[in-house]
């Protein structure tokens, strides 16, 4: 099993799902800061569902750490932008952010697990 590809797909996929969900739940006319806070909350809620679904197959910590960061970041960003950007574009932004965070964690892990 190639975990590098799986981790990247989980990152991009969870970013897409969270951004899309936030864009569908938060009304476009909401104040940006309120939308940001609620978006972060929706992201964290979805994180728990995704974690329960994915952790048994791909490892608890390897799924939990990226998901925690992606859920908060994408949730807040999507909430802020939901009144200004179309749902499709927000989903692409969510996928890109999720993938970016997964890649950053991959390099962080490579650095931390390097043998002296």
């Amino acid at each position: 099993m190639n975990f590098k590809i799986i981790d990247a797909l989980i990152g991009a996929g969870s970013g897409t799902i969270i951004a899309f969900a936030v864009s569908q739940i938060i009304p476009a006319h909401w104040n940006m800061f309120l939308a940001m806070a609620v978006g972060g909350g929706i992201g964290m809620g979805l994180k728990f569902i995704l974690l329960i679904l994915l952790a048994p197959f791909f490892g608890a910590f390897e799924v939990m750490i990226p998901l925690s960061i992606i859920a908060m970041t994408v949730g807040m960003l999507s909430g802020m932008m939901t009144g200004y950007v179309l749902a499709g574009m927000l989903s692409v932004m969510g996928a890109a952010t999720g993938l970016g965070i997964s890649v950053a964690i991959y390099f962080s892990n490579k650095n931390l697990t390097r043998q002296p």
Binding site: L54, A55, A60
Partner: peptide, 11 residues
């Protein structure tokens, strides 16, 4: 065992 399967694959 089901919930730890992923950990075992990784570790």
């Amino acid at each position: 065992d089901f919930f730890r399967k992923g950990d075992m694959r990784r570790w």
